[in-house]
């Protein structure tokens, strides 16, 4: 068995796939892994993959051209998911690899994603759903704070890397605003300038004190929204359990209205 160990990112996984195909070891003898701390097995050869943008882009283009946008998007969303949780039956990168191998072997490749009876597809589906769900949650639960200079700043702490989903959405929604979304977990941020497309930047050295200098009106609008939030609830129907089921508590800290209710 040859095990390709790749970086946990879209580019890392795609490079791993490129190297695995190029190695000609035979698909049955290859496994991909994003976990560099896994228990090593005897009689296996470990190959560490160096992330290469060119290789990754080649793989991305091929997937897009051969299997269509839906397939490509599903694979990307799966690659963005947090693959470290224990219940998962298969490594994220390996599930993607096996799915692609299967897609190449089938005459109707787009339909391969429907075959949920296959372990790798089931795993892919699960991960993709995880990213989609969290992404969709954040479309609603994300809050912008207006800073002194009119910039809108939002902080999120997602398990999966949902920034690309949020970036697309908010760039279309707020085209004339300057805004920034900061992902605390992955230390990434997207920045958007009015009228332009967004950029993804490394935010490991972001000065967070700057992001607490709110504009003059910001606190007023926060108060207004809190007023609205409290008066819209019906006392006779009070149901805190349902509330925290619908908006899980891990989202509360970064909202305006629930931050002090924790």
């Amino acid at each position: 068995m040859y095990i390709f160990q790749c970086e946990d990112s879209i580019d890392g996984i795609f490079t791993g796939i490129y190297d695995a195909f190029a190695s000609h070891y035979g698909h049955k003898n290859i496994r991909l892994s994003t976990n560099s701390h896994e228990d090593m097995c005897l009689f296996s050869e470990y190959i560490s993959v160096r992330t290469d943008i060119d290789k990754s882009q080649k793989v991305g283009r091929t997937l897009f051209k051969r299997f269509g946008i839906d397939f490509y998007e599903t694979i990307c969303k799966c690659a963005l998911a947090d693959g470290s949780f224990k219940k998962l039956s298969m490594d994220k990168a390996n599930a993607i690899y096996q799915t692609i191998v299967m897609a190449f072997a089938l005459p109707e490749a787009e339909k391969v994603l429907n075959f949920l009876g296959e372990p790798c597809i089931a795993c892919l589906f699960e991960l993709c759903r995880q990213t989609n769900n969290e992404g969709h949650h954040y479309l609603g639960f994300l809050r912008f704070f207006e800073l002194e200079n009119g910039l809108l700043f939002a902080k999120i702490a997602p398990k999966n890397n949902v920034l690309p989903i949020l970036a697309e959405h908010f760039t279309n929604r707020l085209p004339l605003e300057n805004f920034m979304i900061y992902d605390e977990t992955h230390k990434l941020a997207i920045i958007h300038k009015a009228g332009k497309d967004y950029l993804t930047v490394d935010a490991s050295e972001l000065d967070l004190t700057l992001t607490r200098q709110y504009s003059a009106n910001e606190e007023n609008y926060q108060k207004l929204f809190k007023t609205f939030f409290h008066s819209i609830a019906i006392e006779a129907r009070k149901n805190p359990k349902l509330q925290s089921q619908n908006i899980p508590k891990r989202f509360w800290a970064n909202t305006v209205e629930l931050a002090d209710c924790q």
Binding site: G140, A233, I234, N239, P240, Q243
Partner: peptide, 11 residues
């Protein structure tokens, strides 16, 4: 899109 949930659990 649901943006928040009030104390009665409604969106």
């Amino acid at each position: 899109i649901c943006h928040s949930f009030s104390a009665d659990g409604r969106c």
